[in-house]
Nucleic acid binder design. Sequence first.
DNA 1: GAACCGTGGCT
DNA 2: TAGCCAAGGTT
Length: 307
Amino acid sequence: MTTRPTSSPSRSERPRPSAADELVAPILRWYDENARDLPWRRPDATPWSVLVSEFMLQQTPVVRVLPVHEAWLDRWPTPAALAAESSGEAVRAWGRLGYPRRALRLHAAATAITEEHGGEVPSEYDALLALPGIGDYTAAAVAAFAYGRRQVVLDTNVRRVLARTVTGTEFPPRSVTRAERDLGADLLPEDAPAAATWSVAVMELGALVCTADRPRCDACPVVAACAWQRAGAPAYDGPPRPVQTYAGTDRQCRGRLLAVLRDAPGDVTRAQLDAAWDDVPQRERALASLLADGLVAARADGRYQLP
DNA sequence: GAACCGTGGCT
DNA sequence: TAGCCAAGGTT
């Protein structure tokens, strides 16, 4: 940390002159005392374990990921082990985590890692980003958490914490903005390992304390410095968030059809699939999309199976 | 940028 | 109850 003279131009240009000093150290201390003991955070966790966790954690709560992640690593301890099996086995092992295309992409990523990276999970952001199913967040997260690289990690937790503590709004913008990236880069500690710890610490604070609804501000290590709290915790006044309907949608229909395949030991008949959903046009549409996605395979004998 | 892609727990 | 939310990515 550096001490800036009060007359420094850089100080007057910043809305919160010492945001880094006020936030980083307290949050690191808080994390040291409050971090959950998660398998993919342990010292002996492999980059593959971290990668698998990041795929599974996309839009899925930790508690549901834990048992599937453990079984997955037991069965496929390396990318090559997964790549050696059919993608259908990955879809089956994915269970009910949701968004089963992630299982397909994880299998594809394992194949690419095996064939193009000698079986080792890449440590470079760009190489990770080029893998199937890996976008900006996951590439940064794996580089930081598996390899200790210095990366700006912006997930929904980090964005919400920064929106509140620094920007003073209850929620971040709908999509990541340049301002958020700049802020993330500003706050990131210079030292690479410290930067990685900072990133996971902010994520943890967002997951456990600075939650989307009913944040536990009484337990927050930076409540005194929080711009949102200082402003009186004004209610969110941005555009309404789109309601995510589910019942009766194609997504639910796809889920029902895939569950039939997942729960069957081998292949299934068309009649078995038909029994899972009444609306015929919707069922046809859903099955066609599952086939197009590669989540279901049609057999020559008219039956269906996982790929 | 918007739409789409699962699932289950909570309030 | 029904909306809301959970470590996003792809098209």
